[in-house]
Simulated scan of single mutants.
Amino acid sequence: MDQTQNMTVGVVGLGEIGLLYAELAQSFGCTVIGADADAYQRSQFKQRTGAETHEDFQVLFERDLDFVIVCVPNKFKEVVGTAALDSGLDVYFEKPLAHNLESAQRIVDAHDQDSSVCMVGYYHPFYDPVVCLAEYLDSGELGDITHIDARFTHRRWVPNRGSWYTSRDIAGGGVLQDKGSFMMSILHYFGFESIETVTATTRTEFVQQDEYVYLEMWGGEGHENVTDVEDSATAFIEFECGTTATINVAWAVNTAPENTYRLHGPEGGAFLDLREPTLTLYRSEQGPPDRIIDQQIDVSVNEQYLNDQFLNDPELQRDQLARYIEHVRDRTQPTRSSLTDALQVQRMVEQIYDAANE
């Protein structure tokens, strides 16, 4: 990463996520310049990072930048992202790619792969336990997978309640857009991406509670007082390959939190717990003697990736950003978490929303 010392990075959208990415870029030795229409956000950003800021992102794009990180609210990613692409800049998008499929498609259409290197912040395909399971699936060692049970639930994690995060118009949705898109990115990486049929339901049980009880809230309470998104969702999916999947995702539940994937078929199966992390393979062999095999796979994982409840997102984001910088430096397009990958994830999420609204 020594060659990043001379890189200049533009960050558009200077809230908590923008601050995080700016500090990650600075940790690599990059010079950071920020842009945000909100004067308070610019002030906080400058105080935390010491970086120069602009009110207008178009002014930022006139600077000599090596790449841009887009961290604006979902609805505005198309405006900022396509402007950056039209300026010939390399762009890293915080996930999801946009607030809806049509907007995401326009971003992809604006991307010229010969001139701009792009990636979207779905970091699980770079996480070793996920990569390890994907390799077992690709090898055929587990045979055909017929069903997947995926769960990503928090005890309490409604983010920045009352802000754009809980506004359907700006965010495009609630927990399904936020955490569900992570789940779809993992299933997509495993090779399950084309949905044949889906039934789904979404629920709003906590986000609108007057006396919502929580111990901590990412981003704190918002001030716009908009809470018209779902905080949990359940879906039953059948993929075109015939594999089925049950999806449970929630910002808040009154049960133990989970971040797990159970996959099984007639020849084998696997259990992946992203919090531990634990990867167990399940197979059987004819004898004599016959054998039922439960094999725990030890995967080396940086302890900084783990915390008490869930994956330590900033460390995973740091590693993905490092991979992206390598692509920018080498002028190569990413094969994981690309714009087209993110577009398919957006399509999968929207199919679930459509089913829930029927």
Results as ranks from 00 to 15, higher is better:
Y165K: 10
S194T: 12
D138W: 00
H99M: 02
V79R: 11
E196C: 01
P129Y: 07
F126P: 02
F126V: 05
I195W: 07
D210R: 02
S115Q: 12
S115F: 09
F93A: 05
P129H: 01
C132Q: 14
D90K: 02
P96R: 08
G191T: 11
A110F: 03
R168G: 06
T166K: 00
V79D: 09
D144Q: 10
V131Y: 00
V117C: 06
F76C: 00
D112N: 12
E141H: 04
D109L: 01
A134T: 02
F206D: 10
C132A: 14
E141L: 08
S181K: 09
D112S: 14
E141R: 06
E94Q: 13
Y92F: 13
V213L: 02
L85R: 01
P159V: 10
D114W: 13
G172H: 06
A110P: 01
V198Q: 00
R106P: 00
N160T: 06
L101F: 03
S167F: 03
I148V: 03
A110H: 11
R156Y: 12
T201V: 09
T199N: 10
T146Y: 06
L101K: 14
E94S: 13
L142P: 01
Y122H: 11
R161L: 08
S115P: 00
G173I: 02
G140F: 07
T204I: 06
V158S: 07
I107C: 09
